[in-house]
Structures are given as structure tokens and as C-alpha cells.
């Protein structure tokens, strides 16, 4: 079968499709959810919520360390949490920016590259917040006690020390799990967001360089 035969068969199929009025009618009657649009919309809403919550806690934690400059432990706790809140704001802002750059009417490679960049960013963001989140609960605990007027570190440094050890343990477990996922050690995990983001970028790179 030659190239011309393929094209002839293809154009004959066009004529057949043109006669299928029922196809278009069925399509019109069958209302479904806009999956891709819904995914981006829910992601956008989630990022706006993260942005608002981040701003709220940036103010709360910022004022906390400013008011506790007399205690080094509380001030450092406040600064850590303040930085954490600021990073959630920056992450949400960057995600919103990346969502805004995705245009389904742009050339295919451009759109797919932007989608891949968004996915890749979400994966890296997940790593970052996973790492920080593994230990962030220790300063959060100190902050919560401080709201009740108790300086946990000053009153029971051993307890805080053990919390730090537990936090580092959580961090170690998180890093091990992520390395396992990244290596694609198990079939079910191989198709993770990490693998998909990497594959999308590799595919695009291959296509444009070949």
C-alpha cells in the first residue's frame, strides 16, 4: 500500500464521516463535564484559597515574631513560620501565573510545554512543601503553646528536642518514599505525577529535537 493509497483511503473516510449526521446529534445531546477545564478551574480555586490563607498566616506569624523579639526561641519559631507562610503565597502566585499562561488555542507544542511546566512545577512544589511540612509541625506546636502564654522551649526543652528528632524522622521517611516513587520501584507508583511530569518534558524535548 503506497502513501497515495493511504491518503485516498483517508479521504474516502472523510466522505463517510460527512454522512454521519447522527454522530453530531449524539454529541450535542450528550452533555458531559469539561474535564480539562474543570481540573484547571479547581486548581485555580485551590490556589486562590492557598493565597488568601497564606496572606492571613503571614500576617499572624509576622506579628508573632515581632512581638516576641525578647525570646530567641519564640522569635526564631515565628520567623520560620512566617517564611513558610510567605512561601505558600509565592507558590500559589506562581501556580496561578502558570495556569494563566496555558492557552488551548495556541500551537500544540507551546500549550503542551506550558502544561508540562505547570505539572513539573506542581511536582517540585509538592516536594518542597512535603519536606518543610515534615518538620513544620514542631514550630507550629511551639507557636500554639505560646498563644496560651506557655513558652514550650523554655519550660521543657527536652520535650521540644524530642519533637525535633521526630520531625527529622518524618522528613527522612518522606524523602525515602519520594525517592522510591521517583525511581519507579513499583508499577503502581511508576505512573506517579513525578513520572508523568518527567515523561511529558522528555516527549516534548524528543519531538522538537528529532
Amino acid at each position: 500500500m503506497s502513501h497515495e493509497d493511504w491518503k485516498l483511503a483517508w479521504s474516502e473516510m472523510d466522505r463517510r464521516v460527512d454522512q454521519q449526521d447522527a454522530w453530531l446529534r449524539a454529541l450535542r445531546d450528550d452533555r458531559r463535564t469539561d474535564v480539562l477545564g474543570a481540573t484547571l478551574r479547581s486548581l485555580r480555586i485551590g490556589q486562590w484559597i492557598q493565597l488568601v490563607v497564606g496572606i492571613f498566616f503571614a500576617i499572624v506569624f509576622g506579628s508573632f515574631w515581632v512581638h516576641h523579639r525578647d525570646s530567641v526561641s519564640l522569635m526564631l519559631t515565628g520567623i520560620f513560620l512566617h517564611a513558610y507562610a510567605l512561601s505558600t503565597i509565592l507558590a500559589a502566585a506562581r501556580t496561578l501565573y502558570l495556569i494563566g499562561t496555558v492557552d488551548g488555542t495556541a500551537p500544540v507544542l507551546d500549550t503542551q510545554r506550558r502544561l508540562a511546566a505547570l505539572r513539573s512545577w506542581k511536582v517540585r512544589e509538592g516536594w518542597w512543601f512535603g519536606v518543610i511540612g515534615s518538620v513544620a509541625w514542631v514550630p507550629l506546636l511551639i507557636w500554639a503553646f505560646a498563644l496560651g502564654g506557655v513558652n514550650l522551649y523554655a519550660q521543657n526543652p527536652v520535650f521540644v528536642g524530642w519533637q525535633v528528632v521526630a520531625g527529622l524522622g518524618c522528613l527522612g521517611v518522606f524523602v525515602l518514599v519520594m525517592r522510591y516513587v521517583r525511581s519507579g520501584g513499583k508499577d503502581g507508583l511508576e505512573r506517579s505525577a513525578v513520572a508523568r511530569a518527567q515523561r511529558a518534558l522528555v516527549d516534548l524535548d524528543r519531538f522538537t529535537k528529532e
Binding site: V35, L36, G104, T105, A106, P107, V108, T111, Q112, L115, R119, R196, A200
Partner: peptide
């Protein structure tokens, strides 16, 4: 453009 963008995003999903 639109059809292929939707289809390719679906393939990734």
C-alpha cells in the same frame, strides 16, 4: 490546534 491540545492533555491524564 484545540482538538490536538485537548487530546494530548487527555493522553497525559
Amino acid at each position: 490546534r484545540i482538538a490536538l491540545n485537548v487530546a494530548l492533555s487527555g493522553v497525559r491524564r
